[in-house]
Nucleic acid binder design. Structure first.
Lengths: 117, 117
DNA sequence: TGCATAAATCCGCTTATGCGGATACATAAG
DNA sequence: CTTATGTATCCGCATAAGCGGATTTATGCA
């Protein structure tokens, strides 16, 4: 029950849904999320912590950079919710705007930023 | 997006999940919920307001009594989440305890209480 | 080691929501 | 109308979490 509640809580904030939607496109660095969502680093980090604690995303440090992706080891509830979101979020306009910004950003990505890929 | 967030918010509290689980068994009166969940009336009413505002339940007044049931007119997100909960909540022990209390309560229901059925 | 960059966490402030008792509102009966 | 019952909402208090800037922590490089 606590897990279920925690997952719903993690999903009950728009910014976190937007982060998840961006991660559907693949692994991203915190600095990527900052650029695309146009939000301060502390805000991004804070929300990532909720997603991480709910078991929805996992982070991996590579040098100075922290990469996040959708968690591969998840309980059933998390997986089902992620699947539902993957299906439904892309239909929302704010999510589409974010996606377009992501595509544009990745295309013109500054070579001086988190390039350890 | 606001609707999605609102639904997740409504679902992010244990008591509200328990209320929904009880309503899966059929329409109930506030006084029923109070008895089964062993909580004060104001607490029940407050949580029902969240569920109502999120479009997950609907209320109907019959005389002095207020009956609640799962909303029949819901958006897709609400319907999908309710279906998921109907599938997954019954597996949780606290939900099972509530169900047993509901059955016992309904079996011995005082004829002097909300009997306009 | 010092300096630079990235990001997690802290901090002060604000908002939202938890709680249950009190109160306001709604319905019913005499 | 008064009284009784049911319930939505208010209220005071407490906790959780929103925000972004500041600070701490972590990694890299000279």
């Amino acid at each position: 029950m606590k897990e279920t509640v925690q997952i719903f809580k993690a999903l009950s904030e728009e910014i976190r849904l937007r982060i998840l939607a961006l991660l559907f496109h693949g692994e991203l660095c915190v600095c990527d999320l900052m650029e695309v969502l146009e939000m301060p680093q502390s805000t991004i980090s804070r929300h990532l912590a909720y997603l991480r604690n709910a078991g929805l995303v996992s982070g991996e440090r590579r040098g100075k950079w922290m990469y996040y992706r959708l968690a591969s080891e998840t309980g059933r509830t998390a997986r089902v919710q992620l699947e539902l979101l993957a299906e439904n979020l892309p239909q929302l306009s704010v999510i589409n705007q974010d996606r377009r910004r992501l595509v544009t950003y990745l295309a013109g990505k500054d070579e001086a930023s988190c390039t350890d890929k």
